[in-house]
Amino acid sequence: MLIRNTTAGYGVVSRLFHWLMALAIFGTFGLGLWMVDLDYYSPYYHSAPYVHKAIGILLLIALAARFVWRVANVKPSDAHFTPFERVSSHIAHAGFYVLIFALIVSGYLISTADGRAVDVFGWFSVPSPGENKGLEDPAGVVHTYLAYVVIAFAVVHAVAALKHHFVDRDSTLTRMWSGPPKT
């Protein structure tokens, strides 16, 4: 199993980043949608937001590590893509980094607007950047809209991958699942 990427495909680290973060992002999105309507007497009224916030912070760390890994690795060949596919996929992938970063930061700013920290499963906590009275409201609006935009990007991204797999019958999807052949 190759750790690093080659021009023929993605190494195991890139693939784990991809699928684990996809799982965490969709899971956190669903959790977020569900938790905001919980009854005050729900047993999850406190634990659901707690887990949502902790996973968010872990996702931010993963996002940064993934970016470093991406820069430190070769990109698998995109020679079989049309110019449109190359440009649009670059925009979508760069967009993911920017949008997910902004999404997590906006969520963090809701919870820390009163100076409170975000606790991550009791392992560590991220302090508030400072009290920002009232920031929780605009941050909340941004967080909600960005969440839908990120999920919309993910849906377009998935549809594009399926199109490559079933219509173009190329390796775009399979190489994100299986590693490149050892040479």
Partner: peptide, 11 residues
């Protein structure tokens, strides 16, 4: 109420 998330909910 001295709690940003609660105040957001109250608003």
């Amino acid at each position: 109420s001295n709690h940003a998330e609660r105040d957001k909910h109250l608003r």
